[in-house]
Design a protein around this nucleic acid. Sequence first.
RNA 1: GGCCGGUUCGUCUAUCGGCUAGGACAGCCCCCUUUCACGGGGCAAAGACGGGUUCGAUUCCCGUACCGGCUACCA
Length: 505
Amino acid sequence: MSKKVRVRFAPSPTGGLHLGGVRTVLFNYLFAKHNGGDFIVRIEDTDQSRFVEGAEQYIFDCLNWCGLAPDESPTHGGPFAPYRQSERKPIYKKYADELIAKGFAYYAFDTAVELEAKRKEINNFQYNHATRLQMKNSLTLNKDEVEKLLNTQTPYVIRINMPVDETITFNDMIRGEVSFHSSQSDDKVLLKADGMPTYHLAVVVDDYLMQITHAFRGEEWLPSAPVHILLWQYLFGLENMPQWAHLPLILKPDGNGKLSKRDGDRLGFPVFAMDWTDPKTNELTTGFKERGFLPEAFVNMLAMLGWNDGTDQEIFSLQELIEKFSMERVHKAGAKFDYEKAKWYNGEWIKKLPVSGYKLQVAGLLKANSIEADDKKLTQVIELIKDRCTLLTDFVVQSSFFFKSPETIDIAAIQPKWNDHKNLFFIELIRAYELMQFWNHEALEKEFKEIAAANEIKAGELMLPLRIMLVGGKFGPHVFNIAEVLGKEETIKRIQHTLQKLEAQ
RNA sequence: GGCCGGUUCGUCUAUCGGCUAGGACAGCCCCCUUUCACGGGGCAAAGACGGGUUCGAUUCCCGUACCGGCUACCA
């Protein structure tokens, strides 16, 4: 029997949660759930200088919005707590010491200033097999000197002693066999002077301790994979190492390169899942949520950036994604982000979901625009206009006139073809509508057309004016549907109002 | 620079040696709609290049080009 699948998402809480980050979460989550496994969130906050207030909570808010709930995390708890690396600090030293004892790592006492000087002196300086014997470390210093430095609290780091001539090969679930030469990697710092591990030590130790079976991360990590593999070999044995998959990057739409927050600002689309306010600068970056995206659409769109099920299907619920996901079908190449397509997914989900699935959000949006919508009418309105909304925020413009009189009336659209004859028609229409027993769109349309015929005016020439009177502009659903929802009193009131304006002209 | 990865329509992608290279978004045209959308139909649009292997390569191998990632006491 094989071990239970356990995957982890390991963000560092340094700011907003990027599209690519959410996709990494998603693929982890889908893989875990597809295989009946657990999804763990581990906070990689080993760099105290990059700590950002609120960033961790924000990550969980985003996951919650997306519907990607962790089985274990600092906030959800779990048998392998703590899940915050800063709280696991004492654990790592032991493994770093073990590496030193085995000769796979060494103490280095070089100061930042000394390293800086070396970098200036040697172009492309690397702390590696070629240079480490020129440096101040336990390889060059004798035992007593090292002992003395250690005893006098001299700051030091622990570095991995990369082998000079070894080929490191592993099998990536997406890329197949990938190999590196050990001489190419430098002697990465494992334990920092402040006693915190670097990412390199921490991932390996925690993946082992937390019994992670599959480790998925962005492609940008590929070059450091050999270091991690060596660490596995030295510490826990290759046979216990998780299976790796390095996910393709999400690229900017124009040109090339990794998609960044700046690209979103520049091109006018969100990059973060939800609104993020930088606590230092107070700068607000809009998220997909606040931009009017449904989590269903956001997740669907992200999944399709690099994955497909081999058919033409493009709309998937989270449940379907769980059923169909496989790492083998993840594309190797990076994908340029296409905001137009992202919006298309949202439009599809607005049409697909029952109104109850997003009614509350729409009500919230309306409220923010000081429109209080009663529940029954809101549902009715949403049904009527949802086909012409691609973002949730579109509902505001598309529905405002149902709840309050239009602020401006596009008189210019009626005026040129306006005449007394038409004016008379509307006066007659008002009278007829006042007497209507059953206020529904079929009856309203029938009445309208009969009066038009009696006046020998083409209905088509009258429908646009009516629309402008009710809506204020050339948009919205079928005009008699609008009148039906508006009700007798309001409809007549709006017609009269515009009639007066036309008269005044 | 070095190492690693990648390369099918403008974009996301299908194809696991047989292709008239399929779908979707965006674009254009038509229909529906007496507004605008939605919807329906259509058009246009691709295998970086050069060598192999093979009866046959988009698919396998090699090289070149181009793009990207990494090259911190950051993740």
